[in-house]
Design a binder for these strands. Structure first.
Length: 200
DNA sequence: ACATTAACAGGAA
DNA sequence: TTCCTGTTAATGT
């Protein structure tokens, strides 16, 4: 059957799940860990586009039309991925209405995420950026994760929102004194999700 | 002013 | 030991 071709991959921290310009052959789901969708500039600077947490999927763009990957995907910590090969992907796309519904809602949510990023870019208040960045990782469709504790360190968060690690540190103490989060070692616990999303 | 990079010490894992 | 945090000082816009 079609599902026979699903396969699972284990990735070490800081290893590539796929490289830029690679030919896409599967839709990538995250079972465990965290993926960073990024690009490296000519000067070697890292730009992070988005993250994918457990339960999320990435890479359908390069499957829906025949093209090479436009970015690289890296595991930021030990990560387990499940791969839905291109043949099975198109098989499901042709035949399964539930699969199409899932795909549509997934694409729709990612679209609104990127529309939100344009707005995000224009509000430059670093603390607000950090607050929104944390909130975005609680997206119910893109990151179906019920846990209120995020496994992300301050440098990672800075990469995600485009702020330095040191400034993230300041932002986190502000958000903690505001009673929205609690800082931890390599993690953040969100105590008030709604207020965090509406911050300030 | 305010953010960024670089560098450091100290604590957690 | 390595990783992460919290903090400085110097530099840039």
């Amino acid at each position: 059957m079609a599902f026979d071709s699903l396969y699972v991959r284990h990735h070490e921290a800081r290893s590539y799940v796929c490289q830029r310009n690679e030919i896409a052959d599967s839709w990538i789901g995250v079972l465990e860990g965290f993926l960073r969708v990024q690009d490296t500039t000519a000067e070697g600077r890292l730009i992070m586009f988005t993250g994918v947490a457990a339960g999320g999927w990435i890479g359908e763009g390069s499957l829906l039309k025949p093209e090479q990957r436009k970015y690289e995907i890296m595991a930021t910590r030990p990560t387990v991925t499940v791969h839905l090969p291109r043949s099975t992907f198109s098989w499901l796309l042709e035949r399964s209405i539930p699969f199409n519904h899932f795909m549509l809602s997934h694409l729709n949510e990612r679209l609104s995420q990127f529309i939100g990023m344009v707005k995000f870019d224009r509000l430059l208040e670093p603390t607000v950026r950090v607050a929104r960045g944390i909130s975005s990782l609680f997206h119910p469709v893109l990151y179906p994760n019920t846990d209120s504790m995020l496994r992300i360190n301050q440098e990672e968060l800075g990469l995600l929102v485009g702020v330095s690690r040191q400034r993230v540190n300041i932002a986190l103490t502000e958000l903690e004194t505001a009673g929205l989060i609690q800082r931890g070692y390599g993690c953040i616990t969100v105590t008030d999700r709604q207020a965090l999303a509406r911050y300030p």
